[in-house]
Simulated assay, not measured.
Amino acid sequence: MATTHVFTGLAVVAPVAALVPEFALPLAIGAILGGLAPDFDLVFAHRRTLHFPVSGVALAGPAVVAAVAVPSSATVALAAFAVAAWLHAASDALGGGPEMDPWNDRSERAVYDHVRSRWIRPRRLIRYDGAPEDAALAVALAVPALVVFDGWIRAVVIGGVAVSLAYALLRRRLVAWVPDWLE
């Protein structure tokens, strides 16, 4: 789920935000946007166009180094964005495929590796987005953000938890509601 990716990014930056609270807001914004950004390829070749599970570290690593070397709102937000986007792409290999009904295990394509020019196979530790284990993981990953962040970030996390749980309850039924042209 997109929310699981957002909560992963927030969980990664939460310890930094707790240690350096003046950067909490840019860290959170960067993590939220980075957790969402790869899925903007839903309208293109999903999990291929904007997902970089291997090469994404080539941007994330230097962005973190830059944020440590020259800490500013911009550098820490960029680092949080890059790390969250990379973790999103890399973790997609742990789930099912990108098809609308991955519980049928139809695809052996989880996410595209641009370095090797091939698809990484799905590991199915999370059977599909919105599976009960995905909802449980999302809730667990939301906890650090709920502890560290306040204000509207906390409200976004609480709303995201509600969306995660609702989506998990409806996920398998949603396929019947999706127009054929989206499949």
Rank of each mutant, 00 (worst) to 15 (best):
A69C: 11
P62L: 01
V175P: 00
E108H: 06
R127K: 14
S107R: 09
A67R: 08
L165T: 05
S72P: 07
R121L: 13
E99H: 15
Y167A: 10
F149R: 15
A82H: 02
V83I: 10
G130K: 13
L141A: 11
S55E: 14
T75V: 06
T49R: 12
V175A: 05
L137C: 08
P102Q: 00
V70W: 14
A155C: 14
A77C: 03
A145S: 15
G97D: 08
A166Q: 05
V68H: 04
V148C: 00
P102N: 00
V156L: 10
P122T: 08
S72Y: 03
S117Q: 11
A69N: 06
H114Y: 08
A166L: 09
L169Q: 15
A84I: 14
R127F: 07
A84T: 13
V68D: 02
I120H: 08
S55N: 05
A80C: 06
P53G: 11
L50N: 04
Y167I: 12
L146Y: 04
G56E: 10
T49D: 09
I120Q: 07
R48A: 15
V65W: 08
W103F: 04
D129A: 09
A110F: 02
V163M: 11
A110P: 11
R109E: 15
A145W: 08
E108F: 04
P144Q: 04
A82M: 03
Y128P: 02
P53Y: 01
G56M: 01
R154D: 06
P144G: 07
V156Y: 13
H114Q: 14
V54F: 02
I158D: 00
V163A: 13
H46M: 00
L125Q: 04
H51G: 13
D129S: 14
V57Q: 08
A93D: 06
V64W: 01
V68A: 10
V115H: 10
I158Q: 03
V175K: 03
V175I: 11
A140C: 03
V76K: 09
A131N: 04
P122D: 11
R123K: 10
R154K: 07
A69P: 10
V43R: 10
E133M: 00
A162G: 13
G56N: 08
G151N: 15
G160Q: 00
A63C: 06
V64C: 12
D129G: 09
L125M: 07
A142C: 00
I158L: 09
I158N: 01
A140E: 07
A135N: 06
L59T: 07
R109Y: 01
G160T: 12
A60E: 03
L165V: 14
F81K: 02
L137I: 00
V175N: 05
L169F: 13
V65K: 11
R154N: 01
A85M: 03
I158H: 07
P144T: 10
V156R: 04
V143E: 01
A140F: 03
R124C: 09
A80T: 06
A131E: 09
A168D: 05
G95L: 05
A155F: 15
Y128A: 08
G160S: 05
E99K: 02
A80D: 00
I120Y: 06
L94N: 03
S73A: 13
A140N: 12
A145L: 07
A84V: 09
L137M: 05
I153A: 01
